[in-house]
Amino acid sequence: MKRVNRTFPLPYFTINKNFIIQAYSEEAEKTFGSTENLLDIVDEESLPKIRKWVVPDVRKLTLEIHLKPFESEGNPLTCDLHVNWQNDLYAEVLIIMKDAQLLKVTKTMDQLRSRLDDTNFALLEEKEKLEEAIQHGNRLSAPFINLTCDTALVPLFGQITVEKMYAVEEELLQSSQDDEIDRILFDFTAVGEMDPEGTRVLKDIMSSLFYMGVSVVVVGLQPKQVKNFHVLQFPSQISFLNSLQQAIQKYCTT
């Protein structure tokens, strides 16, 4: 192995067919130290590529490969390998590192991506907080109020949605069994829209209550809501009363 006399301002090697270095330039020594085999400085992922392409059959070629990371870096370095076979035995190899511009663009793209990830993450956290708040609100939308020892009032609030109905279902069924409740008044005065799906779940809850031996009374239903009830064919055992006042007079004064 000898230092070539010509001064190339670039890392330059002469190699044989087995990638053994025959000669190298000053720059090559500065950049890569002294190595015996060209493959020693190449990243392992690039080895198949270099073995496939750097052969005497391909006389002249430019190949993009990765080099092993330098000490301070954690990532393989991209470079262009210019190969020229002088004959079937020896090749001249010139290594030109990729333009810093490419690195800069790559880094910027990575930064942008991680910015987006962070934003996404922050949004996700907010979304989870919001969902919890909604869930909490839902659970509070059907309080179970004991009026007398056998009658309870459940005023429903806001829109009747599937989530809300599922959120109150368990609590409602539980409370109706805890005490000696015979009758539950569902008050619709504060109900706005009724989702078809949500109403269906509500119907199921009312049916369950009925099968569990509680009579269900619906009060304060507004005219526009009546047709939702009709469409879904609520159990016929449910009774209806115009207002809460009537209901209280009827069931709570003895």
């Binding site: 198949p48 590529k49 993009e64 991209t78 990729k98 490419l102 790559t106 793209m109």
Partner: peptide, 13 residues
Amino acid sequence: LWERNEISVADEH
């Protein structure tokens, strides 16, 4: 494709 020397790292990115 990169191994086949048909595309570059920039393409991969």
